[in-house]
Design a protein around this nucleic acid. Structure first.
Length: 485
RNA sequence: GGCGGCAUAGCCAAGUGGCUAAGGCAGCGGUCUGCAAAACCGUUAUUCCCCGGUUCAAGUCCGGGUGCCGCCUCCA
């Protein structure tokens, strides 16, 4: 079964056949380094992290390029406001970005190039475009002449006339057509600049991706990705630049992730309705955030809220509880259930997990379905452990654990030891509610004494008291454990 | 105004025309338990937004309507 990917350009799912068998070149547009990253950036990062991990899981050797835009109006503005250099600003937010990604468990790209390291390449590309009549210099600026590229609009599915009709484009006297976009901008007083054939200036935003993708992945590569807001104009302009210069297709599959919303509105800097990755990771384990996102398909919007994250947290607890149970199981040598006839059906279903995972992921990276299969497997495992009727051999169970971990690695989940996860979760939640772990444990000790004395009334009083604060106790033969609801 | 997307149970959500419409959360009943929790079992969509059409067969395809969202300006 081949992998099928939804291609924005054709609006269809297409079979994925990389340019070179067993290899894949992936380019994803990264951030502009002018501020800390929010949950929207996290989603894009997690989506493409899972995509590259899955391609690798399927045996593909992936070169994953994700760029940093380190020169741009917003960085310049911030630098001016803080009376700092743009490189200091960019450096700071690139470092913070890297820390956030590390915390989210996002694997590092193969190459993370920066725009300012590729100014020479950009100037060369502009020269090619001018030579081909696709660009023109005007008073220190250089513009791409959109009318000369007949395929302009093919990615976003619009024609030049359509776009002019809506015309919310800034009026610029120097442009021949209002839709022409800047390849090079003359630098004004106090702005960073590089020498160029058109005078001192700085690159336009779209140019860097054309140059860097070609530099690291070649003229044509396999997958180009980013948030869906980049389809137009950013990716459309990249196509115009790259294909205009080389005459060859830029990317073979265009992949765009949906937005994170807050109250049904796009989470964005300009609306001010954003949560930074740091904010959220101080409240929830990174895998909770990942599960929340991966339970929806990557192209759908997801509505972000505290309640939604709490639900995802419940899900993670369910997974880790089962993983803990499996880990605590005695070894297969003490197994009396091996070879039982009843073993076959549930065992078969548990063993089919890997197959179902592949099937779901091969269908345009359907992580939501894949996670559904994980939950189903968890239920089967728990059922086999709970009842004697559905007993499954230990060998099958430990194999299931291995498969769950293996699949988790592709999704970036279950990276923790179960005990450690559950303990950390408990402590984090207790802290959120301002509960003292010391006091809880003191009450548990008191309750144990009461139980030993069969003073059930006092024991239940303590249980109720703690429960009212969200602390749930559970008694086993040997001890009492606690968790936060 | 132009272009595009979405609408599935109380909530989140998958669903590639064809057996009983995944899964999670919440709820209810039960098993287990001194009482609980977890776990398990059962239960919760005979209008899959509305109207029409194609088909032996439609949540799934086509047309129209309603509602929400996105892009067209920096944006993951």
């Amino acid at each position: 079964m081949p992998l099928r990917i939804f291609n924005t350009q054709t609006r269809k799912k297409e079979e994925f056949h990389p340019l070179k068998e067993g290899m894949a070149g992936v380019y994803v547009c990264g951030i502009t380094a002018y501020d800390v990253c929010h949950v929207g950036h996290a989603r894009s990062a997690v989506v493409f992290d899972v995509i590259t991990r899955y391609l690798r899981y399927r045996g593909c050797e992936v070169t994953y390029v994700k760029n940093f835009t380190d020169v741009d109006d917003k960085i310049i503005e911030r630098a001016r406001r803080e009376k700092a250099g743009i490189d200091a600003i960019a450096e700071r937010y690139i470092r913070e970005h890297d820390e956030d990604m590390e915390a989210l468990g996002v694997a590092r790209p193969t190459v993370a190039p920066r725009a300012t390291e590729h100014i020479d390449g950009m100037i060369r590309l502009i020269e090619v475009l001018i030579a081909k009549g696709l660009a023109y210099a005007a008073d220190g600026d250089v513009f791409y002449t959109v009318e000369k590229f007949p395929e302009y609009g093919k990615l976003s599915g619009r024609g030049l006339e359509d776009m002019l009709a809506g015309a919310r484009v800034d009026v610029n006297e120097k442009k021949r057509n209002p839709l022409d976009f800047a390849l090079w901008k003359a630098s004004r007083e106090g702005e960073p600049w590089w020498e160029s054939p058109w005078g001192r200036g700085r690159p336009g935003w779209h140019l860097e991706c054309s140059v860097m993708s070609q530099r690291y992945l070649g003229e044509t590569f396999d997958i180009h990705g980013g948030g869906e807001d980049l389809i137009f104009p950013h990716h459309e302009n990249e196509i115009a630049q790259s294909e205009g210069a080389t005459g060859k297709p830029l990317a073979r599959y265009w992949v765009h992730n949906g937005f994170v919303r807050v109250n049904s509105e796009k989470m964005s800097k300009s609306l001010g309705n954003f949560f930074t990755i740091r904010d959220i990771l101080s409240q929830f384990h990174p895998e909770v955030l990942r599960l929340f996102m991966l339970q929806s398909h990557y192209r759908s919007p997801v509505d972000f809220s505290d309640a939604a994250l709490s639900e995802a947290r419940q899900g993670m607890s369910r997974f880790y509880s089962t993983l803990k149970t499996l880990k605590d199981l005695p070894g297969p040598e003490t197994d009396a259930s091996a070879g039982l006839a009843e073993d076959r059906e549930p065992a078969g279903q548990i063993q089919a997990l890997r197959e179902r995972f592949l099937e779901a992921m091969d269908d345009d990276f359907n992580t939501a379905r894949a996670i559904g299969h994980l939950f189903e497997t968890v239920r089967l495992i728990n059922a086999s452990l709970a009842g004697k009727k559905r007993a499954v051999s230990r060998a099958v169970l430990s194999q299931a654990e291995e498969t769950i971990r293996e699949i988790g690695a592709v999704l970036g989940l279950f990276r923790e030891e179960a005990d450690a996860y559950l303990r950390l979760d408990r402590e984090r939640e207790a802290a959120k509610r301002g509960l003292s772990v010391e006091r809880i444990e003191r009450l548990i000790a008191e309750r144990r004494a009461a139980r030993d004395a069969k003073a059930w009334q006092r024991a239940d009083e303590i249980r109720k008291d703690l429960a009212s604060q969200g602390v749930i106790l559970s008694d086993t033969h040997t001890a009492t454990t606690w968790a936060i609801a």
